[in-house]
């Protein structure tokens, strides 16, 4: 694991990705996202932003058809199942598992490692304590996720994704459900982490401020004529 995370992050390539719904052409994107860069895809709702993200993540619904390739460095992800793509996906909602504690949710993200059982457990606990400390939630490990504030939940969700050691990030309107005051703080946190790890990032949003905060290239999707 350490070996892989020490490797320079690769480039995320959307190679002529076109998505159709029936006969209607929904989205077409051709882009390269270098390590540490953010590509923002903007447009009003219903334009197919989230569908594009679903295709990259591997969750495209059967009603859609897609062509083109998604590459991460030399690896073609297009035919891989979502769990093999190693893409960190951050949703609109934090979606913390209600059947696990805050620490349990982070442990869910942390990959298993070899070694003796008792040591393994202690090592995992230390990593989770450190991760909680990192986002200002030290000693929150045993708390129920429902007792957290919106901002705290968003931070736990981000940390859960980062602990899984993704090689690129996908953000699906990640700040739209936060209060205006929290939104700025969370934007700074997310983009700082992404840059620190040098992760190529694809973000879809309808909020121009998100795009400005990300500071990368922006693609505007216009609604396709019906027909």
């Amino acid at each position: 694991m350490t070996l892989e995370s020490a490797m320079p992050a690769p480039t995320l390539i959307l190679d002529d990705v076109v998505i159709h719904h029936g006969h209607q052409r929904l989205v077409a994107v051709d882009a390269r996202i270098a390590a540490g860069e953010v590509l923002t895809v903007m447009g009003p709702s219903g334009v197919g932003k989230s569908t594009l993200l679903a295709q990259v993540a591997g969750f495209l619904a059967p009603a859609f058809t897609a062509s083109g390739h998604i590459r991460l460095g030399d690896v073609d992800l297009t035919r891989l199942p979502p769990e093999r793509r190693r893409l960190g996906l951050l949703f609109q909602d934090p979606l913390l598992f209600p059947h696990l504690s805050v620490g349990g949710n982070l442990a869910f993200g942390l990959p298993a490692v070899g070694g003796r059982r008792s040591e393994r457990r202690r090592a995992r606990r230390r990593r989770i304590e450190a991760a909680l400390n990192d986002i200002g939630l030290a000693s929150f490990a045993d708390r129920d996720p429902t007792t957290l504030s919106g901002g705290q939940r968003a931070r736990v969700a981000l940390m859960r994704v980062l602990l899984a050691e993704p090689r690129a990030m996908l953000l699906d309107e990640p700040f739209s459900k936060l209060d205006a005051t929290l939104r700025d703080e969370m934007r700074r946190l997310v983009f700082a982490r992404i840059r620190a790890r040098g992760l190529p990032t694809l973000m879809v949003t309808h909020d121009r401020e998100d795009a400005e905060a990300a500071g990368g290239q922006v693609i505007e999707l216009a609604p396709q004529p019906q027909g």
């Binding site: 769990e83 996906l89 949703f91 859960r160």
Partner: peptide, 27 residues
């Protein structure tokens, strides 16, 4: 919220069955 739980777990690298038993079944 089975569909969302499943997506979160699979995006974190869990295989279908592991994602279902660990993230969806307890709910």
């Amino acid at each position: 919220q089975a569909a969302e739980r499943l997506q979160v777990a699979r995006a974190l690298g869990y295989g279908r069955l592991n994602a279902f038993t660990k993230a969806v079944l307890p709910g």
